[in-house]
């Protein structure tokens, strides 16, 4: 019996993305930990409960930072063909998205502050559907630039209002 599956897209994202995801997640955890620490320092009741929650947070944070970015790197992949854009993303919950080039409406590339730190960029491909933007994060700048140019050129070649 044959089982049909989706093969992974061809290209991986930049390896630096691991550090980008780590930093981004670490900032969130840090905020949480700082808030809890301030609470512990300013108020003295139920100290054991507070400290144990803080310890639990730290453990959870470390586990998340150790697992998530690497796992994500294994999953995040992308590919374009003359007909379609194909992405794979997520880690615990994974998602594949396929959109035909002929239905592309915009191709955006953005660089957030943390992404700039690691010389990375993300590319978002939107269609007329609000449910279907394809987002490729953690690309190095050159690849992102090339991808945007390529997609814009092919998308322009097609006509119609893409709805």
């Amino acid at each position: 019996m044959e089982t049909t599956t989706l093969r992974p897209p061809r290209h991986r994202v930049s390896r630096t993305a691991i550090w980008y995801w780590t930093t981004r997640a670490a900032i969130g955890w840090l905020v949480l930990i700082v808030i809890q620490s301030v609470f512990i320092l300013t108020r003295s009741d139920a100290l054991t409960l507070r400290v144990s929650i803080l310890v639990a947070t730290v453990v959870l944070a470390l586990a998340h930072l150790a697992v998530m970015p690497r796992w994500r790197y294994q999953v995040h992949r992308w590919e374009t063909t003359p007909e379609a854009v194909y992405t794979q993303s997520g880690w615990f919950k994974q998602e594949w998205r396929i959109a035909p080039i002929s239905r592309i409406q915009t191709v955006d590339s953005a660089r957030g502050p943390i992404e700039q730190l690691f010389k990375l960029a993300n590319v978002t491909v939107t269609t007329a559907s609000a449910a279907g933007p394809l987002r490729i994060s953690g690309l190095d700048r050159e690849t992102a630039g090339r991808l945007v140019d390529e997609l814009t050129a092919t998308a322009q070649a097609t006509t119609g209002d893409a709805t």
């Binding site: 994974q94 998602e95 998205r97 035909p100 239905r103 269609t127 279907g132 893409a162």
Partner: peptide, 8 residues
């Protein structure tokens, strides 16, 4: 338009 396949 396109397809999303999601899997937790």
């Amino acid at each position: 338009i396109g397809w999303n396949v999601e899997r937790s």
